[in-house]
Design a protein around this nucleic acid. Structure first.
Lengths: 149, 149
DNA sequence: GGCCCTCCTGCGAATTTCTTGCAAGTACAC
DNA sequence: GTGTACTTGCAAGAAATTCGCAGGAGGGCC
């Protein structure tokens, strides 16, 4: 994984927002970068606690990174909010949630940019970010649930 | 507002899922139907507590209604999950979050159905629900933030 | 390279949010 | 009308999140 470059950008971004570069922040960045799925605050707190970080620090940091636009919250499943790195630290992508196995899949290409520009123009808004969440059955579960018919 | 018909559907849907029609459930339905914006669990618990409902009941009920597909959770702002009625109790719509005033607007027509069908066909998934969340500046804030240039 | 200011972090306690078990109440099928 | 199973309120409890404070560390400046 070519995270070296992303990490450089991350450092630069911290500076841009007046945030210091600390081991803890790099730890969080690497944890997020190392997971393709969004991580909930609880998961993140747990993973980073394993590395010796205090929960309070994790929560505080998440707020800062979210405000700075470095990390972005998205829905995971039916009840949780997950956090993941924003573009350009991670390419834009959307999510597909399988209602059967509860797994979240990335959709690398949503092909919605055009439609969104139109939407924005229609009512005079400026769209800077979009996230699409699809729910349904993944190929595996679809096969499993409809074996014969 | 033509909620009478929607409420009839709601009652029918409760039955379909083996849930009883109780005053509390109608109360929750009306509260959700009476708000165009999604309500967070805390807001909902607060509003219904004002009507004499117990928080525990509210949380339990939300789980049931979510599982039954009557209510659906969506992201509100950057940190919260809001609940709102699903189609057909309420027409499908998506959300636009203004990053400046933090208000949530409904997007009545997303025009994405075609694109989503294509996406689904491409990898063999079955899409039964989609939600689009746009972030940016609403027309008002856009004007306010760019007065001259 | 060293100093100093400010930000960051860990700790512990407090608060808020949400869950659970149980007994009484109520919807609704018969 | 009666009985059963689902609902609800209550109260205790668990889990998640926030807050205040004091010590530690990053990094700008000389």
């Amino acid at each position: 994984m070519a995270t070296a470059n992303a990490e450089r950008q991350f450092r630069a971004s911290l500076k841009d927002h007046g945030l210091r570069i600390t081991p803890n922040r790099l730890r969080m960045f690497r944890t997020l970068a190392g997971h393709s799925e969004p991580l909930t605050s609880t998961q993140l707190a747990g993973l980073l606690a394993d590395e010796g970080m205090n929960p309070a620090t994790v929560y505080r940091m998440m707020q800062q990174l979210t405000q700075a636009g470095i990390v972005h919250p998205v829905m995971v499943g039916h009840e949780h909010i997950g956090y993941e790195l924003m573009s350009p630290y991670r390419p834009h992508h959307d999510h597909f949630l399988c209602l059967s196995c509860q797994r979240t899949f990335d959709l690398d290409e949503c092909g919605l940019d055009e439609a969104l520009v139109k939407l924005a123009e229609r009512n005079g808004s400026l769209v800077t970010f979009h996230h699409v969440e699809l729910h349904g059955l993944c190929p595996e579960c679809r096969k499993a649930s409809a074996p014969s018919a």
